[in-house]
């Protein structure tokens, strides 16, 4: 039974992991994108449209999944580009732009969902996302824990690992960190700050967008539910929780998913639960994140701080 919960949590954690990996990439470039919830909603819309079209065109598992991911990335990436244009080129306030994108994106998802209908509309294409990529898996704990997921879950972990390696080991990653810490110094060192910022805004948004699609097509098996933006805020929280490291984010997303599923899906089977207790347990991920935030500011260690230039627009001519 515990294995079942854990495997559910791993499946669910992919949503957080996409969102937080994407947001980490954006925050590393010095941009606090509060539009991630809206961008994930956009990804959900795009992913559903892409997967549905590919499915109706008679493409197989690979085509459906591929076009789902492609469209999710395109839709979300477009919003990332919009965010980039507003905050990088037009130097608008990042919080204001982000909140607008969240309002807009959540509105788009709900509006679109109300038109296409909600329950089980994408059930058929979503089959390709939910069935394990290893085909039939056994009932033993190993296969249940490691082999029973659809392609998106593995992709999330791969992306997180790749991103964390890029951050740590590659020249690009180090330059990106420099841009987020001190853009003026990075600029003086010959790093193309504007290019780095744009690429990370678009790429981060595109990755986060897959998370939105992952919720609709993988976790809820093709039914549109309107909690994608809520999950998006948790993904933003997870970035802090993981101290801007996607590697820790893999573990963090698992913990978040576990805590998220705990009150509704797991505890009721063992102890009698009422809505009040479950509401209290739901506080845990947020409270823990707030605590992490306070603790890292209390110890004030350089390695665990947010990027120094986070939220500060860069204008080369400024002094």
């Amino acid at each position: 039974m515990f294995i079942k919960l854990l495997s559910d949590a791993i499946g669910f954690s992919a949503i957080f992991l996409y969102g937080s990996t994407g947001e980490t990439i954006i925050e590393k470039s010095g941009h606090l994108n509060l539009g991630i919830p809206g961008i994930m909603c956009f990804g959900a819309v795009g992913g559903c449209i892409g997967a549905d079209m590919a499915y109706k065109a008679g493409m197989g598992a690979f085509g459906t999944v591929f076009f789902g991911i492609l469209f999710a990335m395109l839709f979300a990436g477009a919003m990332g580009l919009l965010y980039g244009i507003f905050t990088i080129s037009l130097r608008c306030n990042q919080n204001v732009t982000g909140l607008t994108i969240t309002t807009f994106g959540a509105g788009i998802l709900n509006f679109w969902g109300a038109i296409v209908g909600s329950i089980g509309v994408f059930a058929k294409p979503s089959l390709y996302f939910t069935t394990s990529i290893f085909g039939e898996v056994g009932n033993d704990w190993f296969s249940q824990l490691f082999l029973s997921y659809g392609p998106l879950v593995y992709l999330a972990i791969i992306i997180a690992i790749v991103v964390s390696i890029v951050f740590k080991k590659s020249r690009t990653g180090l330059s990106l960190t420099a841009v987020g810490e001190n853009p003026a110094a990075a600029d003086a060192a010959g790093i193309n700050v504007i290019k780095y910022k744009y690429v990370s805004c678009v790429l981060g948004a595109a990755i986060a967008g897959i998370g939105g699609m992952c919720y609709v097509l993988d976790y809820s098996a093709g039914s549109l539910e309107y909690i994608v933006d809520q999950l998006g805020w948790l993904a933003v929280a997870l970035v802090i929780f993981s101290l801007w490291r996607p590697g820790i984010g893999i573990l963090g997303s698992l913990i978040f998913a576990f805590l998220y599923l705990l009150p509704d899906q797991f505890l009721p089977k063992y102890v009698s639960m009422n809505a009040a207790t479950s509401a209290i347990i739901k506080i845990i991920p947020y409270a823990v994140t707030a605590l992490v935030l306070i603790i890292i500011s209390f110890f004030n260690k350089r390695e665990t701080q947010p990027p120094t230039a986070l939220g500060v627009p860069y204008f080369r001519e400024d002094r």
Binding site: L32, L34, N95, W233, V236, A237, I240, Y286, A287, T289, A290, L293, I294, S297, F298, N300, P306, G311
Partner: peptide, 11 residues
């Protein structure tokens, strides 16, 4: 402690 207020108020 100069805790980041954007993220804390969000939580």
């Amino acid at each position: 402690w100069n805790t980041n207020e954007t993220l804390l108020t969000l939580m």
